[in-house]
Design a protein around this nucleic acid. Structure first.
Lengths: 185, 185
DNA sequence: ATTTGTCTACCTACTGATAGGTAGGTATCT
DNA sequence: AGATACCTACCTATCAGTAGGTAGACAAAT
């Protein structure tokens, strides 16, 4: 793995563990056993690193959507939840939750990039919900975008709140969302 | 108003706007037109200030619960949502959401205090939900604590996500929660 | 009534640590 | 020779925090 992608990997981990303002280039350089200035060689500014982290998510996200394109809708829903389950396994929160808290402290470019990825996540979930409903596998009466907002906010904050109340609550929230979706009434 | 409570007020505003690691004693001293060292006179450490901000919430929260003790359950539910509506009016997030993101960067004392206030909020909402259900005013099939977790996570992340997608979405989420609660099935 | 001491709530002036960032040099590979 | 990927050495700004001083309010002692 290249140093550049290692920096992104560690930066992402720190971002979702501690927030954008609570990690430094030094944290990354220490972890990689290289000098601080070497991080700046790959990413001139912290904003540039932030943008690269978000771009990485966009690429992974596009690949994931593509690979699931012709899979059953239930598998897609599982993939959606797996993003959050994987984060919980590491006691991390999600990118959107982390940067939403820090929103007014980051550069406009990051705010914009975050806006784009939020749109993509919401649109993905909307398409999953629509497909599942059309196939008679998912049940909900709310407008589909509203339903997507409800599920997304549940998952974002579930990662955060259950840092405090415990992982059992995270599983409860996740399972409740799935049950409500796949069971009539 | 005393300098001490002004410091808490401004500290709370900054905490919920930018996060714990993105505000400094200088931000507060500048706003109050006093010197940095004077903030340290009232709060020896940033942790002490954080604890005082949380303690202020506990006091306000206890007063609110007491004042609503004999009021109709619908009024109590409104008061619960008003906490988040008021935050949204200022584009701020809630204390719990902010500190959950910063959780692993703050002292254990703050983590503990945060745990206590989360318990209090959840227990309050649980008691409201129980009362409303017993009176035939609220409808839900989930275990009451699960329902409380769902509503709380929706509101915490609604404040965060709608910094990005807009206030209209916040209102949509809030109204959906109320509608689902007060309408059968 | 005046002095004295104590307390509160600030102040100036500083510290060491760390932040993000830069200039310029060097080893290696093609 | 030039590009790549590092390095040393440094910069300025800011951070939380400290030492020690002071003006004013108040109360007790003289």
């Amino acid at each position: 793995m290249s140093t550049r992608s290692e920096i992104i990997r560690i930066g992402d981990a720190l971002l979702r563990e501690r927030g954008f303002n609570a990690f430094s280039f030094s944290d990354i350089s220490r972890a990689l056993q290289i000098r601080n200035a070497s991080i700046h060689y790959h990413f001139p500014t912290k904003t540039a690193l932030g943008l690269a982290i978000i771009a990485e998510y966009e690429e992974r996200f596009a690949r994931l959507r593509k690979s699931l394109k012709d899979r059953p809708v239930m598998e897609k829903l599982e993939a959606f939840f797996n993003v959050y389950i994987a984060a919980k396994e590491e006691n991390k929160i999600c990118l959107v939750g982390s940067l939403a808290t820090d929103f007014y402290t980051v550069d406009a470019e990051i705010q914009e990039a975050l806006g784009n990825i939020v749109q993509q996540v919401l649109n993905w979930l909307i398409s999953i919900l629509e497909e599942g409903k059309a196939q008679g596998r998912f049940f909900f009466n709310l407008p589909v975008r509203t339903k997507a907002l409800m599920i997304t906010t549940n998952m974002i904050a579930a990662l955060q709140l259950t840092r405090i109340t415990g992982k059992k609550d995270f599983k409860e929230i996740k399972q409740t969302l799935i049950n409500e979706l796949i069971h009539k009434q």
